[in-house]
């Protein structure tokens, strides 16, 4: 008899060592995420995968599934918290979707639609984050960074370069590159790095391919992020 837990009342089988998020997605149930990636250990910073297990709020990406436990995820309460977290991510950066090249391929934008975020709700922070266009192939627009550290992890753990790191603290936290000049052109970053392809939002953009796919025909224009994610799940 395989182990299972109840997700919103529905049985979800799992194997020992699987997290709530992994088991749920494998069974065809969507739990949202921004900082989680199947090829990396859980990070647990975006908190969009927050679920209620045994009455406690936990990150589904970092919490092992437990036999017989009850987990709440797709409920008005949890989805309300997720909408709030998305609103927080929108107001802390500078996200102007209509003029962003990532529009339609952006996971943050797609989650905004998924969770029916109709207003930013809070005051915008309007941080001052200059762009870095120094690299011949790639543009960095820090205005859209959500601090998922996927580029940090990909560059360090897969590309073996450590091109990116976070510095500062709290709301002043920001992404920096591995050069005294602070310019991407002065690092050994390449457009073929995994780190160049992993940004879920519009920070790391490839030059000269903008709008190759017209808006309206992009990934999340044709299907919601929940549908796309489940389609890609094993």
């Amino acid at each position: 008899m395989s182990k299972q837990f109840l997700l919103d009342g529905q049985p979800v089988p799992f194997e020992e060592g699987q997290t709530i998020l992994e088991a749920a997605r494998a069974a065809g149930h969507y739990i949202p995420s921004l900082c989680w990636h199947k090829d990396f250990p859980p990070h647990g910073s975006c908190k969009l995968c927050v679920v209620k297990a045994a009455g406690r709020h936990v990150s589904a990406c970092a919490t092992p599934a437990r036999d017989g436990s009850e987990v709440e995820s797709n409920t008005p309460e949890m989805n309300g918290e997720r909408r709030g977290l998305l609103q927080m991510l929108f107001v802390e950066g500078n996200h102007f979707c209509p003029s962003c090249e990532k529009s339609g391929n952006c996971e943050l934008q797609a989650l905004g639609y998924e969770y029916e975020m109709l207003t930013p709700r809070f005051r915008h922070f309007f941080p001052d984050r200059p762009v870095d266009a120094s690299h011949p192939d790639v543009l960095l627009d820090f205005n859209r960074c959500i601090f998922c550290e996927l580029c940090v992890r990909a560059s360090r753990d897969v590309d073996g370069k450590s091109v990116f790191a976070l510095t500062g603290r709290g709301i002043q936290k920001h992404l920096v590159v591995n050069a005294e000049s602070g310019r991407l052109a002065d690092t050994d970053f390449s457009k073929d790095d995994l780190a160049a392809r992993i940004c879920p939002v519009g920070v790391i953009l490839h030059k000269r391919v903008g709008f190759a796919v017209p808006i309206g025909e992009r990934k999340f224009d044709v299907a919601t992020i929940s549908a796309q994610t489940l389609k890609e799940s094993p």
């Binding site: 910073s45 975006c46 908190k47 500062g168 709290g170 709301i171 002043q172 936290k173």
Partner: peptide
């Protein structure tokens, strides 16, 4: 510290 969204923002 700015690690997680709820506390940072």
């Amino acid at each position: 510290c700015g690690f997680c969204t709820p506390c940072r923002v």
